[in-house]
Design a protein around this nucleic acid. Structure first.
Lengths: 156, 156
DNA sequence: TATTGTTATACTCTATAACTATA
DNA sequence: TATAGTTATAGAGTATAACAATA
């Protein structure tokens, strides 16, 4: 007897968004965990690949992570030689964090993982529909949180 | 200095879906908690409003909840007179659970809460776009989990 | 012996707070 | 005295496992 969610919930966009978002998050976390990483390791590498950061607090703010949790993430990445921490000589409290060559290779591997998960998850949608979904979600995100608004960006 | 997420993440539909889904879930949980309820209380009432269930295990399966967690949810609802548990005379292990009149009123109140949250969250989208978003999400959900597939249903 | 509901336990994730070293 | 990073602690939420009653 394969029962299903109440029709009332399925009719709510908010329920679908929350439920599917959670499912995708957990699936992603599991995939990274299976390789001995956290999905947050990916987000840190992705951020640093767009340029080194001059303080851990900047990374934490960008990714909306707790600074104390970021410490453990960076420890894990540094142990494996994927990022480097270097003290700022002018203010020895701060550290500049940068991705290494090995980190960039690992990032490439991470990309294939998230791409595969996303492809599986969005399988029923064609390319146009995925673009449409992305556009809708981005507008929702940008409206409520400036973190989703990526500057027009002149490439370095 | 209002920094933002890495462009790589924002460009990923999966990231947006997971991130926004989590945000909406937390927002919803907070709103219900502020009224002394859990968001799961809403889902239980919504389910029972579509017809009583002949065993708690059926409810747990429908809502994809752990049976032991459902016990606490039903306790809370029953204490406030929002649902009734009645032992099945034929099999005294089972209980039929049904929503009460007070439960239906509470459900109506819950609906205004989730509607308000959803309206706030989806504010930048017009009606057509919300429908489009709902359609896309539903197709994604239905493809990976039969729980999202509501039978065509001849109304009782 | 198996199943329904219940209670008790353990574990993960995260949020908060305390600590050190530099300024 | 304030700040950057680190470490330690505590809490919520959830998953697992043991238990009692009935079949």
């Amino acid at each position: 007897m394969p029962s299903c969610f109440p029709a009332e919930l399925v009719s709510r966009t908010g329920f679908l968004l929350a439920r599917l978002g959670m499912a995708l998050k957990m699936r992603t976390m599991d995939a990274f965990e299976a390789e001995g990483f956290s999905a947050y390791h990916y987000s840190v590498l992705a951020l640093l690949a767009e340029g080194p950061r001059t303080a851990q607090a900047v990374i934490a703010e960008s990714l909306q992570l707790d600074p104390s949790y970021l410490v453990a993430l960076l420890d894990g990445l540094e142990e494996r030689g994927l990022v480097e921490r270097r003290r700022d000589p002018n203010d020895r409290r701060r550290q500049t964090v940068a991705v290494t060559a090995a980190g960039k290779r690992r990032l490439a591997a991470f990309r294939t993982v998230v791409q595969r998960i996303e492809d599986e998850f969005l399988e029923p949608l064609d390319e146009d529909e995925r673009r449409e979904l992305h556009d809708l979600l981005l507008r929702v995100g940008a409206h409520r949180d400036a973190h989703f608004v990526v500057p027009v960006a002149s490439k370095s």
